[in-house]
């Protein structure tokens, strides 16, 4: 079992390196859901920290971005990193066409929900799967028991729950001649706050809570993911330290959907 963590900046990568095994690094222009992204040169710096490195390319790829994507994949290939966490299927096709050797991690966010599909991608050469956060613990265990793929599972951090191409905040501001000073806003409903981030690539909305399932036994899972976004860097470091030392962290326990099955037929 490896501890994987997203990072907000290089300094944070250095600060947490004793407590993690793998960095998950969002890449400039091709990642979404992460307020901070990294240039290729910075990935070289992160590689020097001698940990596993997975680059995140998780935006929906539009047709006019294919040339840039192909160039990016070729450049990443030279970095000898441990894998690319991908959303768009174009990445599989380009990778196969160019016979790229960098491993792929299937991460279709809310769609990685059963072992049949995990195995489908495994047979296509995608040996890692990053499971949906909307699964129960039992479903995760079932997937693990029915696949050879290595699995990533989120256990700490804010969770993205909506991704749009549209500029939903900017459209509202433009419509009603309003101005915002900050890069990230919140929307409130029934006394719950949800962070909303309108970027060049579109708009993302995050859970109102921090998933904190660090006391649950996931020893069967290959990569346990801690997400650093919107978390104070000192607090985040402490969370990782606590996990390493098998201690509870300061955040309230929150198990998301791990023990709460969603319904879909209301009758």
């Amino acid at each position: 079992m490896f501890i994987a963590s997203t990072i907000n900046n290089i300094k944070q990568a250095q600060n947490i390196k004793d407590y993690i095994d793998a960095y998950l690094v969002p890449i400039k222009d091709f990642s979404i859901n992460y307020p901070n992204t990294f240039k290729l040169e910075e990935i070289k710096t992160i590689k020097n920290l001698k940990k596993q490195v997975f680059v995140i390319i998780n935006k929906n790829i539009h047709n006019n971005e294919l040339t840039s994507l192909e160039n990016l994949l070729k450049q990443i290939e030279t970095l000898n990193i441990d894998g690319i966490i991908f959303y768009d299927i174009s990445i599989v096709n380009i990778s196969q066409k160019l016979k790229l050797k960098t491993k792929l991690v299937w991460n279709q966010e809310h769609l990685a929900t059963n072992y049949g599909t995990v195995n489908y991608w495994y047979e296509k050469g995608v040996k890692y799967a990053y499971l949906s956060s909307e699964l129960t613990k039992r479903e995760i265990d079932e997937i693990k028991n029915n696949t050879k793929a290595k699995l990533f599972v989120n256990i700490f951090g804010y969770l993205p729950m909506f991704t749009s191409r549209r500029h939903l905040v900017q459209n509202y501001l433009d419509t009603f001649n309003l101005n915002a000073q900050n890069n990230i806003q919140t929307i409130n409903k029934e006394e719950k706050d949800y962070k909303i981030n309108d970027t060049n690539n579109g708009t993302v909305v995050y859970s109102n809570y921090i998933l904190n399932a660090t006391d649950i036994d996931f020893s069967n899972i290959d990569y346990l993911v801690f997400s650093s976004i919107f978390i104070d860097e000192n607090d985040f470091l402490e969370v990782l330290k606590n996990y390493k030392e098998n201690k509870q962290n300061k955040f309230p326990k929150e198990t998301g959907f791990l023990y709460k099955e969603t319904i879909y037929k209301v009758k």
Partner: peptide, 16 residues
């Protein structure tokens, strides 16, 4: 409003 498949607002807000 979202990319298809990339919205789980219902899951989080209504458990559907």
């Amino acid at each position: 409003a979202s990319y298809s498949g990339r919205c789980v607002l219902s899951n989080f807000l209504t458990n559907r």
